[in-house]
């Protein structure tokens, strides 16, 4: 496996006049060439911020990478100047945003928007770029691509727009695609179609994908590895099987339990994780999840959990997995 993206000890803060929010704290992860990594977590856990920081798309005035490194294909992104950065954006790394309704330029035809990447990065002339754009529109399965090419975003449906956004991100055949909640704004049937499409294109083009989502169904569908984020930290990481069948962190377990099941008794309430995430402007002393954790021990409030290896691919930041906590019930045993 060849390493493509290596993020180490990344910390990002947002400053306003009143307070400093530590949105991402000490996050490390990597993506190999051609694999799919999912970053899962609830709203505000820092997953989108992490994704945007890879593109250096954080708001310049408020958001700042305080510490850590982002190595893409052996090059450091955090210290790049604008000129170098622009060569990566769109060419080597593509990005799909959450809301296809607002992420397309309303005054440009979709064909031009897709072709633009080729004209910037590959120096294509307009006509040739447009031909390739039409080819790609066909590949994202839009009927009558030649006609579609000349349409404006408002003339297309939500699902079609997201296909256009995907085509736009893929036109330069990037090595890495960052999909920031690509299906959240779409209705369920379209969600499945878009995911299948992404999967298919990934297999065809062989790029790596980072998929950011709060939907574990999306994760199960096509990721190789999963990072679970909570309050700006990665609390558990592992392969798809490890996370779904042997979750070690109580938060991961809570997420899995809260998925409604088909054979669910409708009189019963859905499982929820009580409480809400901590205010990230005040750093918690111990584990950020301890307040909401039903397995919390005294140590959890006092000391930040270390990272414990479960296997070479599976790491958890939870005191329950410490050998000294042997008397505490193992989380995964609770699942069964």
């Amino acid at each position: 496996m060849e390493l493509l993206l290596d993020v180490n000890n990344l910390s990002i803060t947002f400053k306003s006049k009143e307070k400093t929010v530590h949105a991402v704290r000490n996050v490390s992860f990597h993506v190999n060439k051609g694999e799919v990594l999912a970053i899962v977590g609830e709203s505000g856990c820092g997953k989108s911020v992490t994704a945007k920081s890879i593109m250096r798309l954080l708001p310049e005035k408020t958001g700042r990478i305080m510490d850590g490194s982002i190595m893409f294909d052996g090059k450091e992104i955090t210290t790049m100047n604008k000129k170098e950065l622009v060569k990566y954006r769109g060419d080597r790394i593509g990005m799909v945003f959450q809301d296809p309704m607002s992420s397309l330029n309303p005054t440009m035809t979709v064909g031009d928007q897709i072709a633009e990447g080729l004209m910037i990065h590959k120096g294509y002339k307009k006509k040739k770029a447009r031909e390739k754009a039409i080819e790609l529109i066909r590949q994202v399965r839009i009927a009558n691509p030649v006609h579609c090419c000349t349409k404006y975003p408002h003339q297309l449906s939500g699902g079609m727009r997201q296909r256009i956004v995907i085509a736009m991100a893929l036109i330069c055949e990037p090595d890495l695609l960052i999909a920031d909640e690509p299906t959240t704004a779409l209705d369920v049937t379209i969600q499945a179609e878009i995911l299948n499409l992404l999967k298919e294109l990934q297999e065809k083009m062989g790029m790596a994908i980072i998929i950011i989502t709060h939907d574990l169904g999306v994760v199960a569908k096509f990721s190789d590895r999963v990072n679970v984020m909570y309050a700006g930290e990665i609390v558990e990481r592992g392969t798809l099987r490890e996370i779904f069948y042997h979750p070690q962190h109580p938060y991961t377990l809570g997420l899995l339990k809260s998925i409604p099941k088909l054979d669910h008794d409708f009189c019963e309430k859905l499982a929820v994780i009580e409480g809400s995430p901590p205010d990230l402007s005040i750093l918690p002393k111990g584990c950020a999840f301890s307040e909401r954790c039903s397995h919390a021990m005294d140590v959890c409030d006092q000391y930040h959990p270390e990272q414990f290896d479960q296997s070479s691919t599976h790491q958890v930041s939870c005191w329950l997995t410490d050998s000294r906590a042997s008397r505490a019930p193992r989380v995964y045993s609770i699942t069964h």
Binding site: K87, D91, M95, F97, S102, L104, E116, G117, V165
Partner: peptide
């Protein structure tokens, strides 16, 4: 502050093209 400006930046659009077209 619009989303499509983020999209344009993510595509690597800069300079004259960014200001005029987008």
């Amino acid at each position: 502050s619009m989303d499509y400006i983020q999209t344009a930046l993510a595509k690597g659009v800069t300079g004259y093209r960014f200001i005029i077209v987008h």
